[in-house]
Design a protein around this nucleic acid. Structure first.
Lengths: 233, 233
DNA sequence: ATATTATCGATTATCGATAATTGTGGCATA
DNA sequence: TATGCCACAATTATCGATAATCGATAATAT
């Protein structure tokens, strides 16, 4: 019956390494564009290079890092145009997901979704930047899962995970208060109403808001990560 | 100056291994659902297990194989529902890509696209199944690239690559003649006309046609790969 | 007979060490 | 001064070997 006493928080070494590095990226301990050295990481995590490489392969698959063969590995960074393109595509998919989810969601699902939206507001109120981002991800992931298409969920995950990480660091560095329009609550409300046009409009507004927040970030903060990103060597 | 005499067809060992295994999957030498053993592969490719694992990590990232931790690695197989969901999502993205591409394509681009469509017809006429699939992929990839959004291109690639591989094997096994409606030429023609509604309609028709071809594949062929895929253990 | 545990072969995960690659700075040369 | 070449340090890629894990089967107990 109740198994997994020790293993709840362990998993394979490479999976643990994956988690540690992922958190380091989301918190900005390793910043966008910064290099990751395999042997250094291996020493600091007390594992072998092979284990680190396995973790790096997964991180690359998640889009959180970029590996250049025989050269180096860096944390993913985006130009303004890349952020724009990703958000545009995200809008297309997220609209569909929200509409499908609204059609399939039970009353309990919507209640749970409301709780998740509340969790975001709480994290913001508490000033917990890391928890804010994680709660935001959980909220959206829940909608994606409700949509009932595994591939849609997976695609949105791949599309947005590196973006969440990047924007989290940008915004953390710029120390601004975000999400004051409570767009998540608005989306939940629209889904409750099951009005497709309204749902689409709220989703669009939310993502357009994200883009606006990004664009109005202090220019010097963004530039620090974005500029010189294209390797001219 | 002209370097890369030997290296043109080489690259790293893991990249070569990746290519070999990928081809084996596309040709059906390793069939959907079939297991891949790391040490066996390593011996047959004359490389170490680490190199094979690196290649497998990339193949998993491409969606061509599925790795179950501590258990085994199998070639990706899809249920009918998974094929349907993937094609539905593909339709959404492919429509957008084709519309964007048509708006940005030069006369030369469209000529090149016409050539690629012709290449597909040639491969079909020659009865070269493998080349048919590769030409098909090149055709679509060209459109995606024309769309001008790297992330859209990448997302479509991730979405469709495993699907192309799976359907190629299914259709190869069922020995049927496909693509007789020349849908690719129709798409090119619509793009030449730059009529958005027409482009969308042709793209939809093409993908719906793919799905219909899949659905009407000999049931026993599909069942061989699809059934019992869900691990009940 | 059924359920639980022990054991074994096969396979994956991890390790430590070595080989290959890349960028850099010094040095020679024009 | 500018340019090409070479050794060196740093890093990634690959190797061979060992450890850990899993599934199946055999053994045991109820």
């Amino acid at each position: 019956m109740s198994s997994e006493l020790t293993s709840i928080r362990s998993g394979s070494l490479s999976a643990q390494a994956f988690g540690v590095i992922k958190d380091a990226i989301f918190t900005g301990q390793i910043q966008p564009g910064e290099a990751i050295r395999e042997l250094h990481l291996a020493r600091s995590l007390r594992v072998s290079q092979a284990t680190v490489r396995e973790a790096l392969a997964q991180l690359e698959s998640a889009g959180l890092i970029v590996r250049q063969a025989n050269r180096r590995t860096t944390v993913t960074s985006f130009t303004r145009e890349e952020v724009r393109d990703r958000l545009e595509l995200r809008m297309l998919l997220e609209e569909r997901a929200a509409v499908l989810a609204a059609a399939r969601a039970s009353r309990e699902d919507l209640a749970e979704l409301g709780k998740l939206a509340g969790g975001i507001a709480e994290a913001i109120a508490a000033g917990d930047h890391y928890e804010h981002v994680q709660a935001d991800i959980r909220f959206h992931r829940f909608i994606w899962a409700l949509a009932g298409s595994a591939i849609l969920c997976q695609t949105l995950d791949h599309l947005t995970t590196p973006l969440f990480a990047f924007l989290a660091v940008i915004h953390q560095a710029s120390q601004r208060q975000l999400g004051t329009t409570r767009p998540h609550e608005r989306i939940v409300k629209a889904m409750r109403g099951r009005d497709e046009a309204k749902i689409r409009a709220e989703v669009r507004a939310h993502i357009e808001g994200s883009y606006a927040e990004f664009l109005t970030s202090p220019a010097e903060t963004v530039r620090a990560f974005v500029e010189g990103r294209i390797d001219v060597s």
